[in-house]
């Protein structure tokens, strides 16, 4: 697979899905995102990202059950794929490398 670049929101959404114990659909993802970042997201933005991640092969989806508060509509449930896990790991590795290359004491100098 060719190198895929993930946007910030894509990475966050992928992480949220990875963090949940079972399959999730749009609303919980959106709420979790809000809780973690303190920013608000629209349903359309979350959906767009989810589908895009699915298209890239990082998520898989299945149709889930309907509930009353959805007006009887079914959910589309997303789960992390192996490729999705791999890309998260790659990102983490890359970040770790970058962290390690920060010269020692730099943050101290900045007073952090």
């Amino acid at each position: 697979m060719k190198k895929t670049v993930l946007g910030e929101l894509e990475e966050l959404v992928l992480l949220v899905v990875a963090a949940s114990t079972e399959e999730v659909y749009g609303v919980p993802v959106m709420e979790e995102l809000q809780r973690q970042t303190g920013r608000s997201f629209t349903v359309s933005a979350v959906h767009t990202t989810l589908y895009r991640l699915e298209e890239k092969g990082f998520l898989s989806s299945s149709v889930g059950g309907a509930t009353a508060e959805r007006g009887g509509r079914r959910k589309r449930l997303f789960a992390l794929t192996a490729a999705g896990g791999r890309v998260l790991l790659e990102i983490q590795q890359m970040r770790n490398q970058l962290w390690q290359s920060i010269p020692e004491g730099k943050f101290d100098l900045l007073g952090l």
Partner: peptide, 15 residues
């Protein structure tokens, strides 16, 4: 796409 988007939107709405 309609069913899932509309479902999510409505769920949020009722909350």
């Amino acid at each position: 796409l309609l069913e899932y988007v509309q479902g999510d939107l409505q769920e949020v709405f009722y909350k």
